[in-house]
């Protein structure tokens, strides 16, 4: 057992646990976005930052990837942590303001403004879908492509993947609802047009090559009937 101190409370956890697990065991809330039980920690979103060590030499680490150590002193909601966390939320808002999950986080942490250049990305590259596909669905149909500002998630060559079983796991875990509806961009490989129930994809012609996780798809069936 490893003994550490979180927000002044002593806790002992099993070897191999992370700081996040220890804090959750004690009931201290740490917001997370790219963390999910059953998937390997990834440390992409940095929302779970905590402060470790004693103030003049303390540092911020992502608690989902930091292993619990003997004698570690952790603060989960110090002034410094909150400031960093609010900044991260602001940056997420600048990337992907339409995500309900990010909006809820902003409101919870009282982030009222966003001072960066506004973009409307449909992906925050948290990698949840990639890990879901690989680790839980054993498929490896989607992955990261490119580098830097060209980094994106999708199937190789943006075409229908042969290993995808259309389970919809990627759409289910996505915090930015990237794949939910891409009706106005039919070149994207995964359709998901049916996932919102007002089916806009009815109007589109080019969905034959798309991948849809509901097969037969409600929207497509309606369309067939109408024809």
């Amino acid at each position: 057992m490893i003994k550490l101190k979180i927000n002044g409370v002593d806790v002992s956890v099993e070897e191999g646990s992370t700081v996040l697990e220890a804090a959750q065991f004690l009931g201290f809330p740490i917001p997370t976005l790219c963390h999910m039980e059953g998937l390997t920690p990834y440390g992409a979103c940095r929302l779970c930052v905590v402060e470790i060590g004693n103030p003049p030499r303390s540092k911020l680490v992502s608690s989902c990837t930091y292993p619990a150590e003997d004698g570690l002193v952790v603060r989960t909601s110090s002034e410094r942590v909150m400031r960093a966390r609010r900044m991260i939320i602001e940056l997420l808002l600048a990337t992907c303001p339409q995500s309900k999950i990010i909006q809820d986080l902003a409101s919870k942490f009282n982030v009222r403004q966003q001072r960066f250049k506004q973009e409307y990305e449909d992906c925050i590259l948290c990698g949840l879908c990639v890990r879901m596909c690989e680790e839980q669905m054993m498929a490896k149909a989607i992955g990261f492509r490119g580098r830097g500002e060209n980094r994106s998630i999708g199937t190789p060559f943006d075409i229908k993947s042969e290993v995808c079983r259309q389970c919809g796991g990627c759409i289910y875990v996505c915090p930015a609802c990237q794949l939910r509806c891409t009706y106005n961009e039919p070149e994207k490989a995964i359709c998901g047009g049916c996932a919102n129930l007002a089916p806009p994809c009815l109007e589109k012609e080019n969905f034959h090559d798309m991948m849809c996780y509901m097969d037969p798809c409600v929207a497509c069936e309606i369309r067939k009937e109408n024809n």
């Binding site: 992955g143 492509r145 580098r147 060559f157 993947s161």
Partner: peptide, 14 residues
Amino acid sequence: HALVDVYGVATFYK
């Protein structure tokens, strides 16, 4: 290797 991994490497390096 999975095709995504090969594709990921091929697109990562300039």
